[in-house]
């Protein structure tokens, strides 16, 4: 079936099978490889994107379900001036190591920045619970997102 998805402000139209997952559309049709496929069970958060402003796991969603909605991937977070505040801070503070989970933490960190009030360590810890990092101990990631949010 023909579907048209709006990803990072660009429309991508393609004839796909209904069983195609959103993450596969993003990576293979739109060619945006920053969104990773990790556990494929909705646990690791590497495939996280923003759908109409809310974080979702694109491995647990059919591409057809996202029709008519605005999708933002990790590539869409950075603007004309390069990386956004969360991405820049995660990089500068060396909060991430191998980087496989970077897309997930950048997406959820940006969502926290835009949506949460009175952000503190505990709140960030709860919000990032859906993204798994197997290199770090999360502490530096949580501190980084908390600090960026507090400085907003």
């Amino acid at each position: 079936m023909k579907i048209k998805l709006n990803i990072n402000g660009t429309n991508y139209e393609s004839d796909v099978e209904p069983r195609m997952l959103l993450v596969d559309f993003i990576r293979d049709v739109a060619g945006l490889k920053g969104t990773h496929v990790g556990c494929e069970t909705g646990s690791c958060g590497s495939c996280m994107v923003l759908l109409d402003g809310m974080p979702v796991k694109s491995c647990l969603m059919l591409a057809v379900q996202a029709e008519g909605k605005k999708i933002i991937t990790v590539e869409g977070l950075s603007g004309k001036n390069g990386l956004n505040k969360v991405q820049k801070a995660l990089s500068e503070r060396k909060a991430l190591q191998c980087g496989f989970c970077a897309a997930g933490f950048s997406i959820i960190g940006t969502w926290i920045l835009d949506n949460e009030e009175n952000v503190d360590y505990q709140k960030v810890k709860e919000d990032i619970a859906g993204v798994v990092c197997r290199c770090s101990g999360y502490d530096q990631i949580i501190k980084t997102i908390t600090e960026v949010a507090k400085n907003e």
Partner: peptide, 9 residues
């Protein structure tokens, strides 16, 4: 239920 990404779906 799950995490914020699961609750938003």
């Amino acid at each position: 239920v799950g995490d914020i990404a699961i609750r938003s779906m």
